[in-house]
Design a binder for these strands. Structure first.
Lengths: 336, 336
DNA sequence: TTGTAAGCGTTATCAT
DNA sequence: ATGATAACGCTTACAA
């Protein structure tokens, strides 16, 4: 048994391959017993339909492409879980590609997906979203940006995201409410709109409280666990030491937490820390992390649902759903 | 610009589609300027080769299927990262499917991958690995099991795994060395060979120390964060309370850690806890988790490399690489 | 109800 | 160096 095609089955059954095709696709135009015989044969011969051949004629692959920065990030992992569950429920498969935060790889990934003729593409934390929407959107393949947005508002710009400005403001205002006057911010990687927006929220909260913005208080992070020690060093090196810090995401915050513990900086007494995401483990570090919760799973679900709609899967009009914005929520724990 | 095929380019250039194909594939049998003209046109017309059509004739897709339990598990996420990096480096794409620990879905996932004609399949924590190896292996598609093994040793059984028995023994012997006499074990989900093997290691260490095995000391876990409270309850309900516990994985251990903290059970004083995996966040919980480190990234890398070899990518003989077994390593932190 | 034939977008084998 | 033509495995008119 190497590989069986409908022609092989046709030969074995002594009928034409079109009848086999019809039988396998449950067409009403086939004699009931012929259908049964064909199906039994298909089973016995280990037949598996060739998706490539099928999509060559149908023009659809029942596959969506998912571009992430890396799966080894808990936030991304849960988002992908949300996408996967929804996709599976509707008979779609996922091709996964990682950009590793490099625009070049992101572009290459989307090109690969285009070549594989995926029916839709979901890109998380894109740095060049508008480009994809131009290349694919105009070719009829919906592109959904997840937690990023084009600078220029395009006609075919679909996105699902959390309100990052609001989240950043929420976090900062909470720290201000606690009485902190000197609040630092650890940004994410440059070029990401979510990081920029969270920074904007931070700045807006500061401005709202009538606090002068000190550029030194904003330090660059990596969005990863390992940046902690360096971030801590930067913060401690400031002329006037901040009493609180709002981090781009939970991984950054947890890395900082760890570095603080090793350096004997007590959290929250010496330094209050707020994260962003509420990844599953945020509640389990010590001290448990105060953070802005993103509905990660739902973000994935919504993005995939939007893709389904755009591929014509429900009766909903496409124009209803161009830009879904969800709100984050402050979760107070022990790190503040 | 909807979709451009080589025929469209041929028409625009006034040549045959076979010449276009040759030009695009950099065949030496094409006039240099024709080649240049074709390529410019392809660029301008936004041409993207149809992977389905190509693989229909070539018989290969340059795609591997990856079946995981769920991506929303840090161990799995890092493994997939390892697979992805290696795959990308060799021009392969990944189709991702989740089994959610249900044998039925695992089988459906593999069937989908078979239909998509992936060149190879990697299945993590399989519950029915032998089945896939029979269905796909005999059809010429290599199947690599990652951290699971068939009960019966088959001819085409490829696997990459950590030595779970050894790891389980290591963890338990370490606790014994600390003086613990009553050590519990929280198992993973039933039907997984890795969980069974870790249990075997635990039992073997106990036996080696001349300690009678008390079946009540082995409780069932879920492998997830959320099982903590119930596991703790089970442990506290035991007639003679254990002073230490070895958990199937870090997520189980961290869930337990959390539950212990909430219940006022001091770790490690009242209860010492050892995990398994060494997920990135294991060092950042409190107390930091003692665990058996698996080379997660390398596991993924090795599995993908093995797939490459089996697909004929290097000069290595296939027989050299049927079963890679890596050793885990004890990492002592604060939870013991 | 079934069979024949065309076509999806490629690559590959022939000729020319 | 280039062009016809067949083939990959399937779906789908169109015939019978």
């Amino acid at each position: 048994m190497v590989k069986t095609s409908i022609k092989d089955i046709a030969r074995a059954a002594g009928i034409s391959h079109s009848t086999v095709s019809r039988a396998l696709n449950d067409s009403p135009l086939v004699n009931a017993e012929t259908k049964a015989r064909v199906r039994r044969l298909a089973q016995e011969m280990g037949y598996s339909p060739d998706a490539a051949a099928r999509s060559l004629v149908s023009g659809r692959t029942r596959t969506v492409g998912v571009v992430v920065t890396t799966v080894a990030d808990p936030f991304v992992a849960v988002v992908v879980e949300g996408i996967e569950r929804t996709a599976y429920a509707h008979g779609y498969s996922l091709i996964l590609a990682a950009s590793h935060n490099e625009p070049q790889r992101e572009i290459a990934a989307v090109e690969m997906l285009r070549s594989k003729r995926v029916d839709s593409v979901i890109v998380t934390s894109s740095r060049v979203g508008a480009l994809h929407q131009e290349r694919l959107g105009s070719a009829g393949v919906p592109v959904i940006l997840l937690n990023s947005h084009s600078q220029q508002q395009m006609p075919n710009a679909y996105s699902v995201r959390v309100d990052d400005v609001h989240g950043g403001r929420l976090a900062t205002e909470y720290l201000l409410g606690l009485g902190h006057q000197r609040i630092a911010h650890v940004a994410g990687l440059e070029g990401h709109s979510d990081s920029n927006d969270r920074l904007d929220g931070y700045l807006s909260a500061l401005a709202g409280a009538g606090i002068d913005y000190d550029p030194d208080c904003v330090v660059n992070g990596t969005g990863r666990l390992d940046g902690g020690p360096e971030v801590l060093r930067s913060l401690l090196a400031l002329r006037e030491r901040p009493t609180a810090v709002f981090c781009y995401n939970d991984m950054t915050a947890i890395g900082l937490l760890s570095a603080a513990r090793n350096a004997g900086v007590a959290v929250p007494r010496d330094l209050a820390i707020v994260g962003f995401d509420d990844i599953p483990l945020a509640a389990h570090v010590a001290p448990a992390l105060t953070t802005i919760a993103q509905p990660m799973f739902e973000l994935g679900e919504r993005a995939m649902s939007m893709a389904l709609v755009l591929m014509g899967h429900q009766g909903i009009a496409p124009c209803d759903v161009t830009d879904v914005i969800l709100q984050g929520q402050l979760i107070v724990r022990e790190s503040t």
